[in-house]
Design a protein around this nucleic acid. Structure first.
Length: 240
DNA sequence: AATAACCCCAACCGCATCATT
DNA sequence: GAATGATGCGGTTGGGGTTAT
């Protein structure tokens, strides 16, 4: 596989982006879009490689990026999805509107993984005992962490917080999904990923979210999975 | 007040995969 | 089908900020 030369070999700039560079990139993409990342920096007048521009745009400059701390619901969603999908951060990010794979990956490595580990080594801990010292960000944010964002509740289904933020029936859905053998999910997902539709979590995270163009296909896909996993038709109707 | 230790996150790197020729 | 080019993705790291001593 032929790889593009890296930035330093091309005499291109690396490291943190300046405000000016951000502005150039934003205005260029607003005017021309980003059809060709490789050509973009040259056309925009940036001394960056296309890869760097793409990353900066996707992870930081995109207008629909949701800045600030993750909500409890988001964190719990990450944990649940991680159980199902593993380290497929982009797939997880797709279920969390406004969040990037990089951001989710960071949150996982810095908070959630530790939290899970902590809980697993101390399964009899009370929720209170498991509170950690997560800092409160000072930056302006659309969603703010509460102090109690560190509390696992059960081994796999609800890790974050004892206070249930979901309706019980939603939790049932989660537990159902989680109980399905992980290998089943990976097999099912790898068999034809292009068909993987939105999970029901979309409804939790983004009430206005609509399924892809082909809702019927999506539902059919999940129906098949559900039945394969041993669920009944009635159960599927109840869950979804 | 100084500084060591820790934490967080933006950005880089390299591989995988998809698209085009 | 092979070669090449472009993009996507996940793992990792370095620097800056924060907290503890």
């Amino acid at each position: 596989m032929v790889r593009a030369p890296c930035c330093d070999k091309m005499g291109l700039k690396k490291g943190p982006w300046t405000h000016e560079e951000d502005q150039i990139l934003i205005s260029y993409i607003q005017k021309h879009g980003h059809e060709n990342w490789r050509a973009l920096p040259k056309q925009a007048g940036l001394l960056r490689c296309g890869k760097s521009c793409r990353l900066r745009w996707i992870n930081y400059l995109r207008p629909d990026i949701k800045r600030g701390n993750f909500s409890l619901e988001e964190e719990e969603t990450i944990i649940q999805l991680h159980e199902m999908l593993g380290n497929r951060w982009s797939a997880i990010a797709a279920k969390l509107p406004g969040r990037t794979d990089n951001e989710i990956k960071n949150v996982w490595h810095t908070h959630l993984k530790k939290r899970l580990k902590q809980y697993q080594t101390k399964p009899d801990n009370t929720k209170k005992n498991l509170k950690s010292k997560t800092k409160i960000k000072s930056e302006p944010s659309t969603t703010s962490h509460s102090e109690s964002d560190e509390v696992p509740s059960s081994s796999s289904a609800s890790i974050i917080d004892g206070s249930d933020h979901r309706e019980d029936n939603n939790m049932d859905t989660w537990e159902c999904l989680v109980e399905i053998d992980e290998s089943f999910w990976s097999d099912a997902l790898s068999s034809d990923e292009s068909q993987v539709p939105s999970l029901s979590t979309d409804n939790i995270m983004e009430p206005n979210y609509t399924f892809g163009e082909n809702l019927d296909d999506s539902m059919e896909f999940w129906y098949d999975l559900f039945i394969k996993a041993g669920g009944s038709e009635q159960g599927f109707i109840t869950q979804f």
